[in-house]
């Protein structure tokens, strides 16, 4: 029986957690800054509270916060992707399916166009506008579908996808009216990138992320029932309408926060849940936490690659390349697709 045993559950998730902690541990040592210092120096400066040391300023003000942000974004995208794919019974569903990313992007594009300079609690105007745009789109999608007497996932999908298309058209419209400089900033933003922010700012989204993660992971058993059939879940005591609304709201909120902080980083929310399902199966009890942890580690690794790969390439051809790093969103798919396809191929053998 593929029954979920404590050994399998804690074994696999323990391994993932170990990897995640390892990523945090070595994060002060990895980045583009050309100053050379060892990982050991960085941690020593941390424990000696030597906040003026270069190793501390680079390792714990620039690098670790960036990795922490990548981990949180990856956890959220992986988890929400798994939830959406279960909820919509569609392997192509992503956290962005309901238009969160398009709404966020439209918000950011508007902010760049009008040159929004305000910031609130250290959060940039572009991020605020993106968050507002994402929330607005979810709100509208919900408003449309709740108007119907019965709430069906097909209607929700259609409303979300259509809203996404509308936002994309609006973005093109604004881009068309923008200067080259503005358009460049918009396109760059939409590639999605994890950025260096202060330690405090890097965990400022946790009050939003943590409850969302908790609610989604606790919904696992109900989602398992829902996967068999909507009516069978109801007949077994699952409050299906509430399950749908709660999951979609919390997942969309957390995703909106990711989009606001990092832009619409693609691929993680689509393929990480499927990668996790190939390894642990479709039982949501283990699939959801596995997707979350794999997503976090995957995005952090991709972020390191995005910082280092141009340096390696430059060294290889012996001349420095234009920019020092790639947007993270460029790397996720380039790295992830081969991994995923090879796993899929091995499975089908």
């Amino acid at each position: 029986m593929t029954r979920l045993s404590p050994a399998r559950y804690f074994g696999f998730l323990g391994l993932c957690t170990f990897l995640l902690l390892a990523v945090i541990l070595i994060s002060p040592g990895i980045g583009t800054e050309s100053h050379h210092f060892g990982l050991f120096d960085a941690w020593r400066s941390y424990f000696q509270r030597d906040t003026d040391a270069l190793a501390y300023r680079i390792g714990f003000v620039l690098r670790m916060p960036r990795t922490l942000l990548a981990l949180q974004a990856g956890i959220t995208l992986g988890l929400c992707g798994a939830v959406f794919q279960t909820l919509f019974r569609n392997p192509l569903a992503t956290p962005y399916t309901l238009g969160v990313a398009s709404g966020g992007s439209l918000g950011a594009v508007v902010a760049i166009k009008i040159g929004l300079q305000v910031s609130l609690f250290g959060v940039s105007g572009i991020s605020l506008a993106a968050f507002a745009g994402a929330l607005l789109v979810i709100g509208l999608v919900f408003l449309f579908t709740r108007g119907a007497r019965r709430f069906t996932t097909t209607e929700l999908l259609l409303a979300g996808v259509t809203m996404g298309l509308f936002c994309s058209a609006m973005m093109m419209f604004i881009q068309y009216l923008s200067t080259e400089r503005q358009t460049f900033a918009m396109v760059r933003w939409m590639m999605g990138s994890v950025v260096s922010i202060g330690m405090k700012e890097s965990i400022s989204n946790l009050p939003l992320f943590l409850p969302s993660w908790l609610v989604l992971i606790l919904s696992a058993k109900s989602l398992n029932q829902y996967a068999i059939g909507e009516e069978i879940a109801r007949s077994r005591g699952v409050h299906v309408a509430r399950l749908q609304v709660v999951c979609i709201l919390f997942a969309s909120l957390a995703t909106a926060a990711v989009v606001a902080a990092c832009g619409p980083i693609g691929f993680v929310g689509l393929v990480v849940p499927q990668l996790a399902a190939l390894i642990v199966g479709h039982d949501c009890r283990i699939l959801l936490p596995a997707s979350a942890l794999i997503g976090g580690v995957f995005l952090a690794l991709c972020d390191w690659i995005s910082q280092l790969v141009l340096g390696w390439a430059g060294a290889l051809i012996d001349q420095p390349l234009g920019s020092t790093q790639l947007p993270t969103g460029v790397v996720t798919a380039i790295v992830g697709v081969p991994i995923f396809l090879s796993l899929l191929y091995r499975r089908s053998q």
Binding site: Q225, I228, G229, E231, S235, G281
Partner: peptide, 24 residues
């Protein structure tokens, strides 16, 4: 209750499907 439309394309094992009947 056993509805007419049931998911038959699940990768979940038969044993797990039966165990899920214990949900209530």
């Amino acid at each position: 209750f056993l509805p007419q439309q049931l998911a038959h394309d699940l990768t979940t094992s038969a044993g797990d499907i039966v165990l899920m009947g214990r949900h209530p």
